[in-house]
Design a protein around this nucleic acid. Structure first.
Lengths: 210, 210
DNA sequence: CCTACCGATCGGTAGG
DNA sequence: CCTACCGATCGGTAGG
């Protein structure tokens, strides 16, 4: 009976390994650029073995997304429960995002809307709103009630729209070509996060029009 | 002799048609997702005919990029010569970018760095800096000397870094899912541009820390 | 989880 | 600019 147990655990491990391997490849190179053979080889498997764990390539991509979304949701909610002020929270969220999503969150979204069937799209979009967007929206709304940030109707915007803007700024696609020292990127990310926050809170204008 | 002339013009037309068709397809779907057969069919040609005008798929992609870069550089420089204040210029650049690059500037950059050979990458990157980035950098630096925006060293940043930030914010990858009325998008873009400028100049903070 | 294999599609070439 | 065609690679299946 222990053998059945071991088999079960081993299958779970393989499943998890495939998801993590595919996550890295898909996020680096994009859905189409990654072949099922490439994923299998990195896992030490043959390509048809993948189809024992996943119905097809799309199903694997969906699993990768769900895994990523769950990871992020937990981390962001932890940050929100741990820190208090809008400024501190934004700093932690910003550095978290920069450290965990190297370059290409945008690649992920392009793939979702171009490679997946409708019902998968909607499912993932719901997960994305829950995992990424809602924590940021919540943070903004609490910032408003704390009087840390301006009244949004006065700005002519909503917490949702602002959340998208913040996520976009944090997850910049276009980066200055400086990637020389890859190891200092953690301190670089902190510095960049602080700049983003400063601009988001106070702007770059010299204040004479305000 | 008129026949030679006609042939020449016709070839030029075909070349241009291929570039414009490929531009649309590549920017919508990405480099890998677009097949040479797809491009040819939209042009009313057979696939091997493309190889009369371009050495291979990569060369066509490079031509598409050069065409796009030239278009943009001309438009941005025209805006800079026509308007005066930082605020006005930023508004016009923002709306121009939003109106001309529907969704996927980020897709383009991903493809450039993942699908092209090194020497093509460098060539396009140079063109991109010249066409997109330099106009924005110039605008920022004139904004500083006009005292319209804060001293950059006080902010701990540079005009280049700020230019990247502005372009990222304008060319947001993540958008609220609202694309219901596609025809009002022009006024929507103007509204969104104004919001971006307001936040970029004055921030969302309530000003008590300033 | 493997070997063996499939139909489809891809970028690209030959030759006219 | 066409027809005809190539080798490579893809996602996926059969059968064990």
């Amino acid at each position: 009976m222990t053998e059945t147990r071991d088999d079960f655990d081993h299958q779970k491990d393989t499943y998890h390994m495939i998801v993590k391997t595919a996550q890295q490849l898909f996020m680096d190179l994009g859905y189409r650029a990654v072949s099922t053979r490439q994923i299998a080889e990195k896992c030490g498997l043959t390509q048809p073995a993948l189809y024992h764990h996943f119905k097809n390539k799309q199903a694997l991509y969906v699993a990768v997304n769900q895994y990523t979304l769950l990871q992020t949701e937990n981390s962001l909610n932890q940050i929100l429960s741990r820190t208090e002020s809008f400024k501190e929270r934004l700093l932690e969220i910003s550095t978290y995002m920069m450290n965990h999503f190297d370059v290409d969150l945008s690649q992920m979204f392009h793939d979702i809307f171009h490679e997946l069937e409708d019902h998968h799209q909607q499912e993932i979009q719901k997960g994305w709103i829950k995992g990424f967007l809602m924590p940021v929206i919540k943070m903004i709304e609490e910032g408003v009630s704390n009087r840390e940030i301006r009244d949004l109707s006065e700005l002519g915007t909503t917490s949702t729209e602002l959340a998208y803007m913040i996520l976009n700024l944090i997850k910049s696609t276009l980066e200055p070509p400086q990637k020389i020292s890859q190891h200092e990127s953690s301190t670089e990310n902190l510095k960049k996060s602080k700049l983003i926050i400063e601009i988001f809170l106070n702007g770059i204008g010299n204040g004479s029009t305000r």
